[in-house]
Amino acid sequence: MDTTQLLKGVLDLAVLAVLREEDGYGYDIMRRLREAGLDEVGDASVYGTLRRLFAAGLLTTYVVPSESGPHRKYYSLNAAGRDQLTRSGKIWRSFATTMDTLLDDRGVTA
């Protein structure tokens, strides 16, 4: 199974998660996702996801002037975003546990 297929379903959650601790701008968020092991995430997917989460009212944005280049648009989780992260996180954990159990029962090794 292709990771990109899986990513499509959970990218929202991943983006919300990397923004929980610290605000970030597009390129920065992408780097955090890669560092976390999501190598195959596409740049455009991250940007598109940020836009969609913002449009859904889960993120707020602010612009920070940068001394080393153009101004950067920072994204931060708002209350609705944190809420969504908690709920989606629970769903994912429960789903992941179910899948792990299913595979363990059938003897599929990790």
């Binding site: 997917s45 836009r51 969609r52």
Partner: peptide, 12 residues
Amino acid sequence: AYAAELRAAAGA
């Protein structure tokens, strides 16, 4: 391709 991915991810 970038545009298509952006469009899909943003649900545009």
